[in-house]
Every structure is written in C-alpha cells, then in structure tokens.
Amino acid sequence: MEPVDLSRRIEPGMPVYPGDPGVSAEASATMASDGYRVTHLSFTTHVGTHIDAPAHMEPEGATLDEYEIAAFRFDARLVDFTDGTTDRDRDQGRGLDTREAIEPRMLPDDAPDADMLVFRTGWGDHWGDERYFDHPYLTPEAARHVADLDCAVGLDTINPDPTPTERAEDDEPEGTPAHHELLGAGAFIVENLDLSGDLPERFTLRAYPLRVDGDGAPVRAVAE
C-alpha cells in the first residue's frame, strides 16, 4: 500500500483538550521586513495527533527520550467499529453512539503479531465541532484487556477516557482510568488519528514524536 498520512494538521483554532491552551502561530520574521520567514509556534505536548508517554499520567513513568526510535514503529491491527467487521454483540454495521463505552466483549480476544490496536470509532468525522468531545471511550476493563494483550492503543478520538463536557453522563468513569491502565503497563497511546482513509486490517504505523524529553509530543503518524 502507498503510505497514508493519519496526522491532523497543527494550526490555530484546531480542537484541543478542554482547558488546554490553543495553538498560536505568530510571525517572528517576515519577508517584507527581514527578507526571510520565521514563525513562532506555541502548543502543548498533547496537541493534534500525538503520543502519550507513561510520564503523562504515571509519577514514575518513562518519558519519550527514554525509548529507542524503533519503539515508535507499531505492527497495528485495525479494530473498526464503523463497518460491522468486528466480532461484537451489536447490529451489523451499527457503529458507536455518543459517549458509548467500549467494553472488553467488543474487542479481539487476542492480537497475534500485533503490538497496537487502532480503534476506528468514526468520531473523527466530527473533528472541528463540539460533538468531537462526546466520543466513545474505553472502560477501565477494556483498557486493561488491551494492556494484557501487550498492545499500545491508537484512536480517532481525543481521549481513551470520557472527555468532560456538560453532556457527560452519570455512569461514566471518573478521572482517567483507561490512561492509567495503559500507561501504567507501559503501553503508548496515540490520540487524534485521522482514520478516514482506506486502511487494511493489518498495517505498520509509524508515529515518530518530536525529539523532546517529555510526557508526550505531536507525531507524524503514517500507515504503511
């Protein structure tokens, strides 16, 4: 297959986690005044398509700089909730609803030769509007199941946990238990993937972060 870019463009006005500062891009030098262009970019380590390192949530968790570059190449398996191809107890092709919980019974029982499960919920279609924050999420048990498979997670949502909004439901988990189950097991999380294109069930995902010793960083996520 030809490489497929799964990354969101980093630009002012893009969706960011509620409460996080937005993206700014200001000219530090211009062609008119300086004869060249330089842009001052400002954003957090968890903007756009990005990877969470264990240090994001775990007090003793590893930062990105503690990993070799090969750690950011994943043998990925697509778990597609939009086309009815997964083995789940639901109507064929129904897809997921607003703020719906993804439970262990909806996930593969094993992941041979895979070290990442990529969840296509269809919520990437809402990128850029308020509904994007009312996405499906992993229950703590589902996240533990993925961690037990020794897999990382990729998602087309902003969060594997419920994102707080005024539309949150009373039975949703509080805090960030899915993050803790995954990051506590040393499993990376790649969020805000653009999964709108055609992807096979199995592919290689390259998600190389900026070289910073941080709790996370934007990535250029490419499927091959």
Rank of each mutant, 00 (worst) to 15 (best):
E130P: 08
T139P: 01
V47S: 12
L78I: 00
P200F: 05
S24R: 11
R73P: 05
A25N: 07
N159M: 12
G216N: 00
Y67N: 08
Y208W: 07
D115G: 01
G154A: 00
G22I: 01
F43C: 10
H46S: 14
A76I: 02
L182W: 10
A185K: 09
R206A: 13
S196V: 12
R9W: 11
R94N: 03
E100N: 14
P218Q: 08
F133P: 11
D194S: 14
M1A: 15
R206F: 06
G197W: 00
D113S: 15
A71P: 00
F188G: 02
E224R: 14
P140F: 13
P21D: 09
A101V: 02
D148I: 03
P164L: 11
G186M: 05
L149A: 10
Y208D: 09
A207H: 08
D113C: 09
N159I: 06
G216T: 09
A101W: 07
A111E: 05
R131F: 07
D125R: 15
T121S: 13
C151V: 11
A168W: 04
H145K: 11
G216L: 00
R206M: 13
Y132M: 07
V153L: 15
P160S: 02
M14Y: 06
G48M: 01
P112H: 07
R220F: 10
W123C: 02
T98H: 08
A217I: 05
P136T: 04
E169M: 08
I51A: 07
D89I: 13
A25Q: 11
V23L: 05
T44M: 13
E174W: 07
H40M: 07
T30G: 11
R211H: 10
P209T: 13
G84T: 02
A168V: 07
P173G: 11
